[in-house]
Design a protein around this nucleic acid. Sequence first.
DNA 1: ATGAAAGCGCTAACAC
DNA 2: GTGTTAGCGCTTTCAT
Lengths: 335, 335
Amino acid sequence: MQKKNSATIYDVAHRVGVSLATVSRVVNGNSNVRDSTKRKVLDAIEELGYHPNAVARGLASKKTTTIGVVMPDITDVYYSELARGIDDVANMYHYDVLLTNTDEDPVRETMAVNNLASKQVDGIIFMGNELDHEVVNTISGVNAPVVLAGSVDSEKKLPSVNIDYVEAIKEAMEAVIKNGHDRVAIVTGPVEHAINGMHRLVGYKKALEEAQIEFDDSLLFSTHQDYAAGLQVAEKILATGATAAITYDDEVAVGIMNYLRDHGKKVPEDFEIITSNDTKFTIITRPQVTSIGQPKYDIGAVAMRMLTKLMNNETIELTQVKLPHTLERRGTTLN
Amino acid sequence: MQKKNSATIYDVAHRVGVSLATVSRVVNGNSNVRDSTKRKVLDAIEELGYHPNAVARGLASKKTTTIGVVMPDITDVYYSELARGIDDVANMYHYDVLLTNTDEDPVRETMAVNNLASKQVDGIIFMGNELDHEVVNTISGVNAPVVLAGSVDSEKKLPSVNIDYVEAIKEAMEAVIKNGHDRVAIVTGPVEHAINGMHRLVGYKKALEEAQIEFDDSLLFSTHQDYAAGLQVAEKILATGATAAITYDDEVAVGIMNYLRDHGKKVPEDFEIITSNDTKFTIITRPQVTSIGQPKYDIGAVAMRMLTKLMNNETIELTQVKLPHTLERRGTTLN
DNA sequence: ATGAAAGCGCTAACAC
DNA sequence: GTGTTAGCGCTTTCAT
């Protein structure tokens, strides 16, 4: 049973017979301390079970060694992978992480950012699909650097780490078009959302254009982000005569696939599917789901690394980072 | 663009012509302020864009309105569901959450707890399978209440919220035994781990005993916690002549199922499987996987609620909470 | 109902 | 190499 709380830097100083400053120096690894006194201080720290009070330190130094992470939902495997990348790098640089779930509600996002600011975090990583104008405003007003991870603001004012969503969807489209499909459903989140809506649609249309296929908006579907939604939308997709689908969410993709197979369709022979996030869901199903491959962990890790530089006032050459994506061909596509 | 940082309580006080104390009172909702001055203060706060500095407040009041959450891995859907329950209730009571991943490494768990203590968190929720003696020691030494969620310490010294793991596994076993199986594989994590090892084994043996089936330790398997591990262990399980398996992890269960089906076994006709965590993985596969049902979100929520009471120095009647579990019969079992 | 003043535990000049 | 001295921005008695 170690000592409860108590011991302060003053106790240590007093015990050794030196000043607060000296103790502070050894604690902070300042070299200007004679080895012998350093040892004595260290011993006293050990004996008293002294642990620096980070709050006091934060007040005095104006650095909390804490960053804020704002994310839609910790149970969403896509975002939790990013968060893991963030956390690992954060720890590497000795930062702790204050985590907030927002469910992509702009009101809660704004509150979260303001709250983190009042807690004096040294920086913030923000994740979310739609960057509401007000949210961008709030973020810009915060007195701490902010980096977007897996998110974009349309004005590209904020530093961010992403993949090229437009290009990724375009490539996925090209893959199915090459397989002879000309009626390809595109399943997105709310269309007004940047990544899950707009960006994907742009990539989709680009591919159509290059293949000289007319855009048909009856092939555009917008759903909730879960398995049940996939089950539901599948029927509607089938009704349009589509023979392939590109989806924004892996659970939705699996829902569509399962519905199709339950209704006598063969995947991929009768219907091809490509999804976007390459989460575990795409691996455990039979067939496995072809997906755009995203370096999820790395997106988080790189964003966090960027944030450390920003917090350190280093200048950053490239603030709009695009990490490479792939196409992971699995069982829901031919070839 | 709102004001960067700056305004302090002093600025507000000065502007209105009152003392710091008065401003502090209105900020903290103390009733001893005349309505008219209160209004003036509020106005000044608005005009100056004043936001209380939580760090300073924490130092002065010795309360940070922050709790620590220690968990194995944010990307593990089982734990992230618990975390969501924790976070929602924490927000409800206006606490922020400092999150740490440990990968169940006792060294990192100890460091995490100590670090959180030095950050002066008001309380800690701890999640993890194995409560290393040293970790329990560290936890006990911390000057803040701690509640275990989905975790147990063998000495039951620490407050905790769980389901009855022994009973749950026993019931799962009874279900397959009733279906005529007498060679049932049990797949756990490291046997020395409390929940994923020991507890499950106890429940398994109890059921065997009641059914008067001899325990055969060649039916006991210990694996990593992922899909690939399931694929691998499946072959060995088959070699034992087992006709059913109880697993501790859903991904492992799906791995086993997929391997079996790929190798000509029919699930559930030839082989029945019951897993433990009832995560999304059990829903999206075909067939869906029968699982013990756990109120994951509630485990987190209840643990957090308990922690708020502890932080508030309320006495708690029951510190070892067991929430009800179920058996979710799906496609990997008959009946 | 309001103000004065003493800290909370630490860092960071600045002296010596 | 070490000590002195101000704060950091706020809460909290204790007076009034």
